[in-house]
């Protein structure tokens, strides 16, 4: 892992600290600016994180309590009533199951297909490779929202609309993932593969047992961003399915909130659903933070 992912992963690592000039006013000014720096950091940390505190706290409140004290991080009476209703009174368990299924299939599929294509584009010589790569870069620029109706048209035409296939197949290969893998494979020295080939391994065998294991950092990054985007995916589900049995969690939650399924405000219930939709990515984020950072910067790299 030489060139690409390195810099981003190091993002927060310390640079050698130089002592600033000491002495009366300069020292005081440094102190003051350090204090101001912390103040700004803490203030914004609150702004960025407190909504999640509100989300969790209010999902554990009674409805009148949530309405009366929305800001309070402590539930008046602590109650799991909202979660009970979420699991027993709505289709949410079903959506949760669909989300898990779709996310796993999408993640595994993307890793496999993107790294196959990324490897071919990085290493194998075939006619049309350069043109194909340009096409994939062009494809990345196609904005997702303008594809709503078009995707629906194709799914409808192929008779796939409103099925698990419709949820999965159209988004199982993504150009950005191919791009990330290609960049990575290009950073691996060719000599390793040449040795394997001279030993008589075929192209797929070389890829599968020699090159892919070396790509672990890139594979983890790709896994993380695939999981995250598959789990959070919303607009695609709007044009792929319409039966509540096929909803994923974000789709079900959106319907719950926009009123076609739920009545009244019921904020603890809705926030409980939102908590469930947030947890998997949050856990992953805490464990694999640097890979998320890497993924974000790969995104910047591809521009």
């Amino acid at each position: 892992m030489t060139a690409s992912p390195g810099a981003a992963g190091r993002a927060a690592e310390e640079r050698p600290r130089r002592k600033h000039k000491t002495g009366g006013t300069a020292g005081a000014r440094t102190l003051a600016s350090t204090f101001a720096g912390y103040f700004v950091l803490v203030f914004f940390a609150l702004v960025f994180l407190y909504p999640f505190v509100i989300q969790i706290a209010n999902s554990l409140k009674t409805e009148p309590d949530a309405a009366a004290h929305p800001l309070s991080p402590v539930p008046g009476p602590l109650t799991f009533a909202a979660y009970e209703r979420v699991f027993l009174g709505t289709d949410l368990p079903l959506w949760l199951g669909n989300s898990v299924l779709v996310t796993i299939v999408l993640t595994v599929g993307r890793i496999f297909l993107d790294s196959l294509a990324g490897y071919a584009l990085a290493r194998l010589r075939f006619r049309g490779r350069a043109a194909l790569f340009s096409a994939i870069v062009a494809v990345m620029a196609v904005p997702g929202v303008v594809l709503f109706i078009p995707k629906f048209l194709v799914l409808n035409q192929l008779g796939l609309y409103d099925s698990y296939t419709a949820l999965i197949l159209p988004v199982i290969a993504d150009a950005a993932g191919v791009f990330i893998m290609k960049q990575f494979f290009e950073s691996i020295p060719v000599s390793v593969e040449e040795a394997a080939r001279i030993d008589g391994a075929g192209v797929f065998r070389t890829f599968w047992s020699v090159v892919l294991p070396m790509a672990r950092p890139a594979l983890i990054t790709l896994t993380i961003i695939s999981f995250q985007s598959a789990w959070n995916e919303f607009p695609h589900t709007l044009v792929a399915v319409q039966s509540p049995e096929l909803f994923t969690l974000p789709r079900g939650l959106a319907d719950l909130v926009s009123g076609s399924l739920g009545k009244g405000t019921q904020y603890p219930l809705k926030l409980g659903g939102a908590v469930l939709a947030t947890i998997p990515v949050a856990v992953l984020f805490v464990i694999f933070q640097r890979y998320f950072v890497r993924g974000a910067n790969e995104g910047a790299e591809k521009g």
């Binding site: 927060a12 940390a45 960025f48 909504p51 959070n232 909130v257 659903g273 939102a274 947030t278």
Partner: peptide, 26 residues
């Protein structure tokens, strides 16, 4: 710095639908 960086970045990785629900409430 690692903590603050994570805190500021965290909202970007969460579900847009879930976070919209939270802002509806807020």
């Amino acid at each position: 710095r690692t903590f603050f960086r994570a805190a500021f970045f965290f909202p970007s990785v969460t579900s847009s639908v879930a976070i919209s629900v939270v802002f509806l409430f807020i």
